[in-house]
Design a binder for these strands. Sequence first.
DNA 1: CGTGCCATTGAGTCAATTCAACTTAAGTGG
DNA 2: CCACTTAAGTTGAATTGACTCAATGGCACG
Lengths: 227, 227
Amino acid sequence: MRPHSLADHPLCDAPPLATEFPVDRAPAGRRLGVVTSVPRGRALFWQGEHQGHNIEVLQGVIRAVRLLENGNRQVLAFFWPGDIVRPSQASCQHFTAEAVTPCRVVKYDPAEGVCTLTDPCGAHQVLKELLSLVVTIGQNNSIGRVASLLLQIRSHLPSDPRRPNALQLLLPRADMADHIGTSLETVCRALAEFKARRLIELPTRKTIRFLDLKGLSQLAAGCGACD
Amino acid sequence: MRPHSLADHPLCDAPPLATEFPVDRAPAGRRLGVVTSVPRGRALFWQGEHQGHNIEVLQGVIRAVRLLENGNRQVLAFFWPGDIVRPSQASCQHFTAEAVTPCRVVKYDPAEGVCTLTDPCGAHQVLKELLSLVVTIGQNNSIGRVASLLLQIRSHLPSDPRRPNALQLLLPRADMADHIGTSLETVCRALAEFKARRLIELPTRKTIRFLDLKGLSQLAAGCGACD
DNA sequence: CGTGCCATTGAGTCAATTCAACTTAAGTGG
DNA sequence: CCACTTAAGTTGAATTGACTCAATGGCACG
């Protein structure tokens, strides 16, 4: 069914967490941990391993991935700058966290930081995202799924300094596909379709310009809910 | 896309919560509320309305439904006897809770009972279920989705007194379909397929006998995770 | 004993996947 | 800095699978 196996991700077997950097800066009111740089593709922690730390994303994008027996993967969520990855939130059923792009993160010891499960905000956020993902996948065809995904990630995308009104589309097609349960090619075709309908522009492959948000959301069932 | 609209559910517009019954009995160690009978199809509370109560299911099955602008619905979860429905857990994005079968429930005032968001167990359970639903929908074709659903609900189904080793399949086909994001007919065909492969038996439409659990789980990707 | 709801089955259509070829961009080393 | 190598994205064609629509069958309820 799903295509992109583990073997597609060469950096996957690199050891978790690399160079430790000195403390840099931190969001106001939060206890500081250690700032770390994570190269693209590197795992922060592995599905199944007991991991106590909470990790705040400073720069870049992290993906939460569930690896399956058949080698396929389901991208459960993306974490953007300001988000906090809480490993044990997924309970008995862990997930692997990997850097989609080069990242900078801060580790928090949950004992001294925001605490995993009892933190209402964190639980809220993940629940909200999973709910809208279920609706996105359950209610939409491929066009609708991609439209819904674009609308959801839009607010997190940094602007492209070179091109006015354009955003950096940080996610590769495969990650989008594995998130919304379609194939990579189908994502491509959906994007091409949106371009043809003048809902978006794609100045480069990794750059997107939104032309018609209302038009996009009309293609995505449940997007009154997701935004 | 999805078929079964609100209009398909005639009891849907009945007012929430009916007859109040005197307190009956309660699980050990929990503060008692008021035991209520809920007829099939009746809503316990509505998506969007602010609802403070937690509701424990004593008998029957409750479904959590997200209603969409286009009239379709996504069944987010089922609640079985022993489960506690926490309305505000779904956060800003509420859901409607309806009785799949005639139910008996107990309302808890969250102030004096188990409390919604800060309760780790509750958050855990819903998160776990949503995660496995995402995998079920995202990774499986229709056969796999139905197989996965059957395996997930199996442990909750009461046995059929008339037929040995048979369980009461409490969910109508439409509810199964709207949960796993397929059509009602596709659920039927999947069940027929399982019957033909001698993985299950269907003595009646609402009765199921599991013959080959391993066979079923081999059809469902991600079921190493979901069970 | 009807009547209506739910479930099942069939046929045709359309959409998404798969497989494959090709294009473009990115990265690497001379 | 350019040529080369590899990864990522795009497009096409064929196939399969799921949906829709429709007709029929069975069960529960009044």
